[in-house]
Nucleic acid binder design. Structure first.
Length: 499
DNA sequence: AAAAAAT
């Protein structure tokens, strides 16, 4: 079997590799490194977790170790789709280039230009960047790409998803025709194929088997439940999530909780914290410094629950996550594979729990088609709903609220799915309550001012007024006409046609 | 129904 020492790498690189504890290259490393060292273009079809990063950093350091950088003219360039990924590549360089004198700069958005400018001015051997910030520097005239000898594109298919391909093409055109190109993508979409045909010269094509999508080390579960009411789905899912985390007990050492929307990431993280869980959010709208800090805390173990958007689904190197929770079913089936792939790594056992509502059926079908198996259905935990501090600025649901609901929905207790249906209110409340004393109309009940009007779910669920279906009581707002003020209706015909 | 990345 090949060892790193057989690969013709610079002795100083080999030393650092050995110190990092590696002896045997992964398949992509064993195949890509010799070609890269020969100066050939490489087209690597491989996913995260295959050792892709080292397959280009090690030969790059070796090739660059001779020669020195000139001011504003980096000798090599690595492009990554997200800031975290770029930062990760930079860390990799630090690890493996530590015995060399190579310099590097990390050019990503969300941080000040000043330090980056300073480094570029001094001259760097390796420039690691996200496309937007790189072009920004270029346009400000601070950067010349005509000295680039080696260019790496990492996670090209993700760049495509994110609309970066035009930027990538432009950057390619700013670098010399004679450069060496190392290009990595998990898939070969037609657009990716076109780019590689245009910008790579006779590349060595290396394909590494995709990680088993449903690796045996990941135990997948599906928690399928129907929210008691559409507008309660969000709150009930939060309660469900808490119950699921709690049920895992100590076995859940750390977990990533994925939501589909950034806003939900924030609310879920806040809600978990309010319930005493050690949780923090990460998504693209947060400060870069905060994103980094949160990731560091999570890696170090001081943070147990990372609530994330799909920014964290791919690429990020987060070792040893015991659990992944999908608070939302991802709407791209590929993302499901990426998300659950954050657990069960390196032979360790992992658990991936997905919360699904009937609205997710379509996406669930696509996911199960992709992974070619059904996700085993797990029992739905019972949830109680009236202990939410994130709604704690309102009086706890009073007995009359529950009683009213019981009265309004006499069929509830008879539902056949009662055992598995989530409880949305404590059913042990005295059902045989005394005859309703005349209650003040909800509108007259003095209520403390609500601070959470911004909250997405408060809009629907504003008070304890019972919902009476559409039977004998119709909420006033529904009786209002849908007609808009005449002034707005300049073209009434096109308006209806558009709907 | 979305997320990511330049300000």
């Amino acid at each position: 079997m090949t060892k790193f020492s057989d690969l013709n790498l610079d002795p100083l690189v080999l030393k650092a590799v050995a110190e990092a504890g590696y002896e045997t290259p992964t398949p992509i490393q064993a195949q890509a490194i010799p070609h890269a060292l020969e100066g050939r273009d490489v087209l690597g079809i491989a996913q995260t977790g295959t050792g892709k990063t080292a397959s280009f950093t090690l030969p790059m350091i070796t090739l660059l170790s001779k020669g020195r950088a000139r001011a504003r003219m980096p000798r090599s360039l690595v492009l990554a789709p997200t800031r975290e990924l770029a930062a990760q590549v930079a860390e990799n360089f630090d690890t493996y280039a530590k015995h060399t004198k190579l310099t590097k700069a990390l050019l990503i958005g969300g941080v000040s230009f000043k330090e980056q400018d300073l480094l570029i001015d001094r001259g760097v051997d390796v420039l690691i960047a996200t496309p937007g910030r790189l072009l920004d520097h270029f346009e400000r005239g601070k950067l010349l790409l005509t000295g680039v000898q080696i260019m790496v594109v990492d996670e090209a298919d993700r760049m495509l998803d994110m609309g970066f391909i035009p930027d990538i093409e432009r950057i390619f055109q700013l670098t010399p025709f004679t450069r060496q190109t190392l290009f990595f993508s998990a898939t070969m979409a037609p657009e990716i194929e076109r780019i590689t045909n245009t910008f790579l010269t006779n590349p060595a094509k290396i394909e590494v088997a995709r990680q088993a999508t449903t690796s045996e080390t990941i135990e997948q579960r599906l928690v399928a439940f129907a929210p008691s009411r559409r507008d309660r789905a969000f709150g009930e899912k939060r309660a469900m999530l808490r119950a699921l985390i709690t049920a895992e007990g100590e076995g859940c050492t750390n977990a990533i909780i994925f939501c589909n929307r950034k806003m939900d990431v924030d609310v879920v993280a806040k809600s978990l914290k309010a319930h005493g869980f050690n949780a923090a959010p990460i998504h693209g709208d947060l400060d870069q410094s905060q994103r980094m800090r949160t990731l560091d805390d999570f890696r170090e173990g001081t943070l147990r629950l990372l609530v994330a958007s799909d920014v964290a689904a791919r690429g990020l190197d987060i070792p040893a996550v015991s659990h992944v929770f999908n608070f939302d079913v991802p709407s791209h089936s590929e993302d499901y594979v990426h998300r659950i792939g954050r657990t069960g790594r390196a032979g360790r056992k992992g658990v991936a729990v997905t919360i699904a509502t009937p609205a997710d059926d379509k996406y669930l079908g696509q996911i199960e088609a992709l992974i070619k198996r059904e996700i085993p259905r797990a029992p739905v935990p019972e949830i109680t709903f009236d202990d939410r501090p994130d709604r704690g600025d309102r009086p706890a649901r009073g007995r009359h609220g529950d009683r009213d609901r019981d009265r309004d929905r006499p069929a509830r207790g008879e539902r056949s799915d009662r055992r598995t249906a989530p409880r949305t209110e404590p059913q042990q409340q005295p059902v045989a309550a005394p005859a309703p004393a005349p209650q003040p109309a909800a509108e007259d009940t003095p209520r403390p001012p609500r601070r959470d009007d911004r909250r997405r779910d408060s809009r629907h669920d504003r008070d304890d007024t019972p919902v009476v279906g559409m039977g004998d009581h119709m909420p006033e707002f529904l009786t209002r006409s849908f007609a808009r003020p005449a002034a707005v209706n300049a073209e009434p015909d096109t308006e209806t046609a558009a709907g």
